Amino acid sequence: MFATPLRQPQASGSTDKLQNHQQDTPYQYEITDHGYGKDAVKVLHVSRKGPVHTIHEFEVGTHLKLYSKKDYYQGNNSDVVATDSQKNTVYLLAKKHGIESPEMFALLLAKHFLNKYSHVEEAHVHVEAYPWQRVCQEETKTMWNGKGACNGDPKLGNCNFSSIDDRQLHNHAFIFTPTAQHYSDVVMRRNDPKQTVISGIKGLRVLKTTQSSFVNFVNDEFRSLPDQYDRIFSTVVDCSWEYSDTESVNFSRAWQTVKNIILKNFAGDPNIGVSSPSVQHTLYLSEKEVLDVLPQVSVISMTMPNKHYFNFDTKHFQKIVPGDNNEVFIPVDKPHGTIYAQLARKDLKSKL
């Protein structure tokens, strides 16, 4: 569930506190990694400002790593902050401070655990945002008459809330729009001044019907795929990026910027489109533009599985449907190709 930090932390020197806890190791075997926490804590926060309400629904995971391992070796729980207490912390901090974005809430929780409990070495908080958007009423064709009905096309039966143009946002009604998921991981270590803040996009599924090709690849005795000069291109984008600067960034705006960059490089101009000679090239152009546009991002990683749509062969059915087929395709989810790359600023290579 938890993302792996893209920037691996530099090993911190042995601290007195760490040395004191080495005596917890009573056997010939050593615990080399450990931690515990509460996963899938669901919280909904409603901000009520007059008639206009704003909601954030998150699924939160909190994991702590203690200096001591005596709970493992000796069954001594005196340092354990119960996972139930971690769950309560999520709700209480949401009540006390409100919720702004996955990143800000994860930072708030991680800082709390390190500040509150001196025996906690590391806090890792994972937050996934549920994609709620305000219900929108189309103003140009239908008008709410205030009597429980709509004035407009009687065939609609009620107001048209599906339009994306010229919309009026509802004050307190929302619709679930799972186009893509916004998540964040924050890792804070007491002995590492550089906090790790990762944002991510998960499950962004896209498809275009032309301007995608794949030609001139290795031609040997194992190849059966012909050159693809014009094919359907469909993928499900998973993308994560790490910030080197968290003070000057608007996390929600940055997340939307990355999403828009991915869509732009995939789709291109609405009327003309954009040519894609490979999934690799489209992926690289997206990552490069993110680093160009967002100086606070130090490294970005992206995965694009190639969701295949194969042309249905109609050559044996010419009496039924004569001619070539370029309209009917067979969706094939498995197996699928997987393309991924991580792009980093050159001055960070030594730290990755």
Rank of each mutant, 00 (worst) to 15 (best):
M143V: 13
E128C: 10
V332M: 14
A149D: 09
D79N: 09
D185A: 01
P193K: 03
F266C: 00
K288Q: 11
S199W: 09
Q296F: 00
D24N: 10
S286P: 07
N20Y: 08
S12Y: 08
R223H: 07
N325H: 05
Y183K: 08
S14L: 13
E100Q: 12
T235A: 10
D39K: 12
T4L: 10
Y183T: 13
C136M: 12
F266T: 05
S252C: 14
Q133T: 09
N306C: 00
I300T: 04
Q86Y: 03
K95P: 00
K315E: 05
S47K: 12
E247C: 05
L225A: 12
P178D: 11
T15Q: 08
T179K: 14
L285S: 07
R189T: 04
Q86A: 01
K319V: 04
G146R: 02
T177A: 11
T140W: 01
H112W: 05
V290G: 02
A267F: 12
N145S: 10
L109F: 02
Y36N: 06
S101C: 11
D166H: 15
V297L: 01
D238W: 13
P295N: 01
K259H: 11
N265E: 10
M302W: 04
P322I: 03
N191D: 14
K346A: 13
K70A: 11
